[in-house]
């Protein structure tokens, strides 16, 4: 695993390059007559400079190794994706059930009964939002 400070520089450099290269696809124009690409280009260039400065800094300071736990973030992302897909094709109530039962995989203990209760509670809250606050959620 790379060190934190190196990872910081690399991450920013990647983001700066991504936005900078894409900005080149738009007309740049001149300082007096801005094209849509100029401002993002300037900002991504500045970001790249900072990224390089961080990479230089990482040579001089010691920083702890990168600590990355991929399991929980993957579960949460899967839960959100499941919510979107199921809500699109079925309805939000089913989406909430999928959200709760998937997301709780990330917890320390898994309780079917508790999840069922939480899902039911959230469906009731969603219904209340729909009825009382006038949000159009399409719960059922």
């Amino acid at each position: 695993m790379p060190r934190q400070s190196t990872a910081q520089g690399l991450l920013l450099a990647a983001i700066g390059l991504f936005f900078g290269l894409n900005a080149l696809r738009y007309p740049v124009g001149t300082l007096a007559r801005f094209g849509p690409g100029l401002f993002p280009l300037v900002v991504s260039a500045a970001l790249l400079v900072l990224a390089v400065a961080m990479l230089v800094r990482s040579r001089f300071i010691t920083s702890p190794p990168l600590h990355f736990n991929i399991r929980n973030i993957a579960i949460i992302m899967a839960a959100l994706a499941g919510f979107v897909v199921v809500t699109t094709f079925v309805d939000m109530a089913a989406g909430i059930v999928v959200l709760v039962f998937t997301a709780t995989l990330a917890g320390t203990a898994y309780h079917w009964r508790r999840n069922a209760l939480v899902a039911a509670g959230l469906i009731v809250i969603a219904l209340a939002f729909e009825q009382l606050l006038g949000l159009r959620l399409g719960v059922v």
């Binding site: 917890g107 320390t108 939480v118 899902a119 809250i125 939002f129």
Partner: peptide
Amino acid sequence: VSYGVLFPAILFFCCI
């Protein structure tokens, strides 16, 4: 209240 109850609820409010 256990975090196991709280965090799915927070996630749900983020979605809503």
